[in-house]
Each structure stands twice: as structure tokens, then as C-alpha cells.
Design a protein around this nucleic acid. Structure first.
Lengths: 104, 104, 104, 104
DNA sequence: GTGGTCTAGACCACC
DNA sequence: GTGGTCTAGACCACT
């Protein structure tokens, strides 16, 4: 029985991304071992108190990254070779700004 | 002259919240000292390349939290007693969840 | 006035992916020029007869690929430098199979 | 002995539709000649690593289109007159859309 | 039952 | 008004 501490900060939004991050960490750290079966999207959604779409999004993202493998009708499992260093990612546009303040 | 690194991630949205978080951190860490005067909302907005409403929102929130004090004619300043070691009193809705998995 | 021929095959599913593909082609081919403003997600959804989520998904994907830039409150536009060769992509698991048949 | 390259993309789902498409192409292109006997649903399912229902669905669809003929005790064979040059008669719901954009 | 997808509606933040 | 996000419900395909 693994307690994955899947707490989500609802106020922060992007629940799917948060959940994916939690699960990714669990896999990377080994708390979630290869071939382990994950809860169904419906079950986890209910457990977390979020809509199923949130869980589907998270599983989808992790599947695209190679951490999970999900097949319709069969459930979702941790991939056998969760390798993958990290999907690089394009640099996000940022609004740079500097604040010059002199203490009174 | 302090460089506060107030970079905002435009793509992430919630700019007001982001900005407030950055300023809060600056105050907590001491990079922004008590009584220090903050830039006007208009100036900071222009510096960051965001609309003034974003900055107004951030200042309002930090004022409500006790970090900032704004008085007409005196602009906005860091409060002398930034109080609130950690806003733990504020309810933070969370979705808790446990994951029971047995690797088959 | 550009007719982008954004026809979608509803029976094929993955409407968001289809739409993204159509728009990507339009950008790559130059039919959609840099800085051109795209219709709002709501407007295009209604025009195509799909739910807004489908359009949001497509815009989101193209934004992640660097083809589009969307900012809340402002609309969505074609990026200035739509470069990007193609996001490689991990090899998909396949079910291989051979069929040996002798014509009677 | 014909290698039909019946590779299916499991991640894409709709395996039945994919398989039917592959077989239809094989018939149209002549790689699968009239009166040729197809493998049993069980055999092909095992060969492809999918459930039998997938193959049954594919055979059924092709039979309905006139490409295959299945008779009890005689298995499934390619029809002598694969007729139907193109299933244009079947309604194919499409979402048409035009995009009018002027590059500002 | 399980994942995949789409819909319709809603709320928020930003401009 | 616009994009971003979440919800709730539904249908389909596969096992």
C-alpha cells in the first residue's frame, strides 16, 4: 500500500499538470515501479475530488512522455522503461522586469 | 539598486498572483526592506509590460495580507511589520489522495 | 479573405488534432502569415460546429509547438518566427503483424 | 505468401477501423485477390495481438462494404467483385469552416 | 469496467 | 470580448 501524497492545490489551477508532476516524481523516485497498475481515471478522479478530465489529462501527458502506457479496455500502467531524461521543451516567452528600490 | 528579478510567465496567466508572489518573496527574504517605497502601479506595469490592473491587483492583495501599506500621497511602501510569518490561517483547499498500488 | 478549408472529419475523432494539423499546414504554407490574428476560440468553434474545447486544444498544441502565441485577454496570433522543423516525437508502440495468404 | 504489413497503431485506438482500412487497401491494390481466403478471426487476432472482437468488427465492416464474403463453414473470402469503387454514398459528416484573416 | 473523446456550461483572469 | 481551466455527463471502442 503506497501513499503517494497526491495532494493538489486547487487554487493554483492546472490540476492536470500538478497531478502529472506528482506521478512523474513517484515514478522517477521508484515509489511507483515499472508495470505497476495505476487506478482507473474514474477512481482516481473521485479519490482526488476532481473531474475525470483532470486525471485523463495527467495520464495522457505522462503517456506522451513515455512514463505510462495506457490501452483502452486495459488500464494504465507504469512503462517498463521510464527512462527519458526530460522532454526538453521550448523556451517560454517571459516578461522580464527589474525593480530598483532604495530603502527610503 | 536592487534587481528583484520580477520575471513573469505570461503564458501561465494569473499575472497578478504571480507578481504578488514575487513581491511577497522579496519582502520575506529581506530583499525589499520595511518602509521601502515601491514603484507606482503605472511605472511597474510599464516596466513589466503588463496592464496596470495586474499591478493594482498584486498591491491590493499584499496590502490585505499586511505586507504593504499604501497611503494617499505617500505611495505604496513595505509595511514595518510584515507580520504573518506564514498565511497558514487562510484556508487552502486541497485535494488529498492516496494511491494504493501493488506492482502486480 | 482567406479560405483555409478547415474541414474536419467528425467520424475520425481527434478533432483537436485534426484542426491543429490544418492550421499548421496553413501557417507552414504561408496561407496564414506571421502576426495574423486567428478567430477567437468561441467563434471558430461555432463556425466549425464543434465544442470550444476542441479549438482550445488545437490552439494550445500549436502554441506549444511555437506556431501560435496566445495571451489571455488578447487573442491568438501566428508567431513571428514559426520556424520549428517538427517536434520529433517518441516512437509509438505498434502491433506488428504479417498476413500470409495464398489465393486459394 | 504475401506480407500484408498489417501494422496497427495501438495507441491510436479504433483498431477495428484500422484493420479494416488495411485489408481494404490490400484488396483494392490487388495484394489480396478475389476468392482468397482470409485467416480465421481467432488466428488473425492472435497474430496481431489484439482481441478477436477487433478482427470480427473489421471483417463485418468489409463484408458490409462488399469486399468480403463470409459463409458458415467456408470461412471468409475476398469477394469476386469487390464492387464499390469508393464508398461515396455513405454519408460522412463533416464540419466545414472558413477562416477569414487579414494579417493586420 | 477502462481509456479516449466530445459537449455544454461555467468561472476566472486579463485587456 | 478573449484565452485558460474545470466540471459533469455522455458515447464509443476495447478487454
Amino acid at each position: 500500500m503506497l501513499d503517494l501524497h497526491l495532494d493538489l492545490d486547487r487554487a493554483a489551477g492546472r490540476l492536470g499538470v500538478q497531478l502529472a508532476a506528482r506521478l512523474r516524481d513517484a515514478i522517477r523516485s521508484g515509489r511507483l515501479v515499472p508495470a505497476a497498475r495505476l487506478p482507473s481515471t474514474r477512481a482516481l478522479a473521485q479519490d482526488l475530488g476532481v473531474s475525470r478530465g483532470v486525471v485523463v489529462t495527467a495520464y495522457e501527458q505522462l503517456a506522451a512522455e513515455g512514463f505510462l502506457v495506457s490501452r483502452p479496455g486495459d488500464g494504465t500502467r507504469v512503462a517498463r522503461l521510464p527512462a527519458v531524461p526530460a522532454p526538453a521543451g521550448r523556451a517560454r516567452p517571459e516578461a522580464r522586469g527589474t525593480l530598483d528600490t532604495l530603502p527610503e
